[in-house]
């Protein structure tokens, strides 16, 4: 099953490599990974999406917690949560395609953020499956380039991951 694991960790050199290293060392899977400092510049927030049985996910959270740089770990998928991913997608846009892409982007609440006579770049945010659906709707033949941030997420309501 897919899990979104959120990690609060020290914003120290080498901290990210310890997390990434742990995943490869213990044969854990990484679907996507995103990391950036928080409002407190001494802390970073890392989100990793991974696949695994309950036993594997339990090991992942325990092994992450063992890292000295890691302050807190939560498996967001255990409770109500919100997840978002940002995608920028560069598309061939000539002739009729220009209108078609614009319409599809509107339906998905995307924005066209760069325009040339032959291309559109669309920005789209949402859950990962929504981004997948947009790619399906556009069709792969018109796609020049795709870049996705990977999933970020947090728990709904009052629950927070903080010191």
């Amino acid at each position: 099953m897919r899990h979104i694991i959120s990690v609060l960790m020290e914003n120290e050199p080498g901290a990210l490599s310890r997390v990434v290293g742990l995943f490869s060392q213990r044969n854990f899977n990484i679907e996507s990974l995103t990391v950036a400092p928080t409002e407190d510049s001494t802390l970073s927030r890392l989100t990793v999406t991974t696949l695994g049985s309950d036993r594997v996910i339990e090991q992942i959270t325990k092994q992450l917690n063992k890292l000295i740089d890691v302050v807190k770990v939560v498996d967001l998928t255990e409770g109500e949560h919100i997840e978002r991913e940002l995608m920028m997608i560069k598309l061939k846009a000539t002739g009729q395609m220009r209108d078609e892409i614009k319409r599809t982007a509107d339906i998905f609440r995307g924005q066209i953020i760069d325009v040339t006579p032959t291309t559109y770049t669309v920005q789209l945010a949402g859950a990962s499956d929504k981004l997948d659906a947009f790619i399906d709707a556009i069709g792969t033949s018109g796609i020049m380039e795709v870049v996705r941030t990977g999933v970020s997420g947090l728990s709904r309501g009052e629950k927070v991951l903080s010191l």
């Binding site: 050199p13 080498g14 000295i68």
Partner: peptide, 14 residues
């Protein structure tokens, strides 16, 4: 050395 030893240390400092 921080990289080489990473999988076999409890922690490391530079």
């Amino acid at each position: 050395m921080i990289g080489v030893s990473r999988p076999v240390v409890k922690h490391s400092f530079s």
